[in-house]
Design a protein around this nucleic acid. Structure first.
Lengths: 340, 340
DNA sequence: ATGCAAATTGACAACGTTGTCATGCATGAC
DNA sequence: GTCATGCATGACAACGTTGTCAATTTGCAT
C-alpha cells in the first residue's frame, strides 16, 4: 500500500478529481451526499493531500519560516511553541531557520529559503527583527514578514510587528528596587545588537530620574547577556569604593552571574545585596535565592506574531500589538542593609 | 521580478530544461562549456530549484522530520542544532515535530506528517524512540527512522540507533561519590517513560554493589525529571533518621531542586551535603555551587543520528553508534563531613 | 410541460521539476 | 569510407494537485 492520492479517492467515490479537491478545500458547491461519499473514501484510504503538489499548483504556500539567531534556548523553545501552536491551528507548517545575524548576505539567504521551500512569509525574532536594512531588503523581495521586537510603543514604520515593552518592564523593576530603599543600583547591559538592551537601560534610567535617585556612571557596565559578563560585572561593581546595594542584570543569565559573584565575595543575597534579572527563565525559579525578574509571555507573543503573519498573508490588514512584561518578585531582593 | 524557474535559466543559457536539470543535479554528460553557460545563467538570475516541484517529480524527499516530546529546552535545542548541522551539510531540510508521546494515534500522526510533507525519514528522540510498539508501526508504514536512545550497548533489534550509555555515566558519578567517602547516597529517579531513568538507576546500583556499599531502599525515591520532584525528594531524604551525605539527582533539574531544598534546610553544599546532577545543562554551570554532573554531547549525538538516517535513506547499510557521557566534577561535591 | 438561472460536476491544462527515451554528433576501429 | 560506440543534448510525459471553463443537472417560476 503506497500513499493514496486524490486520484484513488476519486475512483473510490466515483467522482472526478476536481470534486475531491473541492471537498478537501471546502469550496462549497458540492451536494451533501457527494461530499459524504468523498469523505468516506478519504477516511477509508487514509488519504492526506500532498503539500508539495498542492503548493506547487496553487502557488499558495502552506508553511512559514521562523528566523532567529538567539543563544537563549528557553526563549527559542518558547517562540517555537507559540509559532507552532498558531501554525497548527491555521493549517500551516513551520520551518525553523536559525541563522547568523551577522551573515553578510542574510537577505539573500532568507529569500532563497522562502523560494526554495515555498514559504508564505517569515516571523523574525530579535535581533534580526530589528535590522531595518534587512527588513527593507526583504520587503523589496516581496516577502511577507512579522517582527517580534522590543519597543515602548508601536513603531508605525510600515512593518507589522508585535512589540514588547522592555523599557516599561525595566522601569518597574528599578522602581521596585528604589521603593525597597536602594539608591545605589548597579545596571549590567545586555548585548548591543539587541534592541532590548538600550530599552531596558532607558527604563532603568527613567526610574532613577523619576524617583530623584542620582545617576552614577560607575554603576553601569556594558556586557552581552551572558553569565560570564554578569560575573565579571558584579565583581567590578562590588569592588567599588562605594558598591551598589542592588544589581539589576539585563537578563536572568547575567543575574545568575551576579549571584555567583556575590557568593564568591561572601555576600548573602538578598541581605547584603539585592539582585534582579529579566526574563523569568527556569533558572530564575530554580536558583537560590530565586530571582526577582520580569515575565514576558514569550509563547503567547510568538503565537500572536504568527497569527498576524498569517492574517497578513491572507490579505487582511493587520494591527500591531503590544505586550508588557510583568514584574515577578521573588527571593533575591530585599531592603538594603542599614549602612554601619 | 518574480522567482526565476528552470525555464528562465534554460532560455538564458540557450539550452533545454533537461540540461539545466543535469547541471543542477551534477548528473554528468554535460560539456564543460555548456555547464559554464548554465551556471552563469543560474547565477545571474538568482535561480534556486523549487523543492516542492523537485520532490514531487522525483519521488525523492529532501527533508527529514525530527520528532520529540521532551520538556527540556536545553536538550531539544541541542538536538535541533545537531540535526540541522547534518541536514544543511547533506542538503536536506528539517521539519520539527514536537508531539505528545501519549497521543493515542501517534503512529498515524507521524505517517500523515511524513506523507503530507514528503519526508524522507524521521529522527526520533526519547521517549518516542523507546516505544517498541511505535517503532514497529512506523516500520510497517515503511518509514525510515533512526532513534536516539539510552542503552548500555547496541540493542541489535533491527532499528538503527545512536545509543547513549547512561548506565555507565551514572556508574561513574556514583563511583566518584563513593571514592569521596560517601556511603549513604540518595538517588532520585527521573521519569518512568524515559528509558534513561532505569539505566541511570542501574548504574547507581551497580556502583554501590561493586564497591560493597550497602543498598538502602529508603534512599531511593521516584520522580519525574523535575525541579519540584527534586525539591520534595531531597526534603524527604534529609528528614530521614539517618539522612544521606550525598544525593544524586537523575538530571540537573532534579539536582537544582535538591540544591534548593538543602538551602532551605540550612545545609551548606558541598560541606553538609554533596549533590550531583546529570546533563551538563547551563544551570549546572551557573548554579552556586556549580553542579558535578555528566556531560552528554547531545549536539554531536543528534548530528550523528541524522547522518545515520540520511545514509539509511541513501540505501547504505548503517552501523549503530554508541556514546558515553563524561563525568564533570564541579563544586557541589566534596568528602562527607565527619560524623560527630 | 417549459424556460432559465443557479448549483453541481467534470475535462483539461498547468505549476516546476526530473525520468525516459530518442536523436545528433564526434570518435575510433576496422 | 563504414560502422559501432559513447557522449551530449533535447522532446515529452509525468509527479499530485488546483484553476479555468464548459457541460450537465437541479430547482423553481411560469
Amino acid at each position: 500500500m503506497g500513499t493514496a492520492t486524490i486520484r484513488d479517492v476519486a475512483k473510490q467515490a466515483r467522482v472526478s478529481l476536481k470534486t475531491v479537491s473541492r471537498v478537501i478545500n471546502r469550496e462549497g458547491s458540492v451536494r451533501d451526499e457527494t461530499r459524504e461519499r468523498v469523505l468516506r473514501a478519504i477516511e477509508q484510504l487514509g488519504y492526506r493531500p500532498d503539500l508539495s503538489a498542492r503548493s506547487l499548483r496553487s502557488a499558495k504556500a502552506y508553511a512559514i519560516g521562523l528566523v532567529y539567531d538567539n543563544p537563549n534556548p528557553y526563549y527559542i523553545i518558547a517562540v517555537q511553541q507559540g509559532a507552532l501552536a498558531a501554525c497548527r491551528e491555521m493549517g500551516f507548517g513551520l520551518q525553523i531557520h536559525p541563522c547568523n545575524s551577522r551573515a553578510p548576505k542574510l537577505a539573500e539567504e532568507l529569500r532563497d529559503l522562502v523560494h526554495r521551500s515555498r514559504l508564505a512569509g517569515l516571523v523574525l525574532a530579535p535581533p534580526m527583527s530589528e535590522r531595518m536594512g534587512l527588513l527593507r531588503e526583504l520587503a523589496a523581495y516581496d516577502i511577507p514578514l512579522v517582527r517580534i521586537i522590543s519597543a515602548a510603543e508601536d513603531p508605525r514604520d510600515g512593518f507589522p510587528c508585535v512589540f514588547v515593552d522592555d523599557r516599561d518592564a525595566a522601569y518597574a523593576i528599578t522602581a521596585y528596587l528604589i521603593q525597597l530603599g536602594h539608591v545605589r543600583i548597579g545596571f549590567l547591559w545586555g548585548g548591543k545588537q539587541h534592541r532590548s538592551s538600550p530599552e531596558r537601560y532607558k527604563g532603568y534610567e527613567k526610574a532613577l530620574h523619576d524617583y530623584g535617585v542620582p545617576m552614577s556612571e560607575e554603576l553601569v557596565l556594558e556586557g552581552d547577556y551572558s553569565f560570564d559578563d554578569g560575573f565579571r560585572g558584579a565583581r567590578r561593581l562590588l569592588g567599588l569604593a562605594e558598591p551598589p546595594t542592588a544589581i539589576f542584570g539585563s537578563n536572568d543569565e547575567i543575574a545568575a552571574g551576579v549571584l555567583a559573584a556575590a557568593r564568591a565575595a561572601g555576600l548573602h543575597v538578598p541581605y547584603d545585596l539585592s539582585v534582579a534579572g529579566f526574563e523569568d527563565s527556569p533558572f530564575s525559579r530554580h536558583s537560590w535565592p530565586s530571582l526577582t525578574t520580569s515575565r514576558q509571555r514569550t509563547e503567547v507573543i510568538a503565537e500572536h506574531a504568527t497569527r498576524l503573519l498569517i492574517a497578513e498573508i491572507h490579505g487582511d490588514d493587520v494591527k500591531n500589538e503590544g505586550f508588557s512584561p510583568e514584574l515577578v518578585v521573588r527571593g533575591s531582593t530585599a531592603p538594603p542593609r542599614p549602612r554601619p
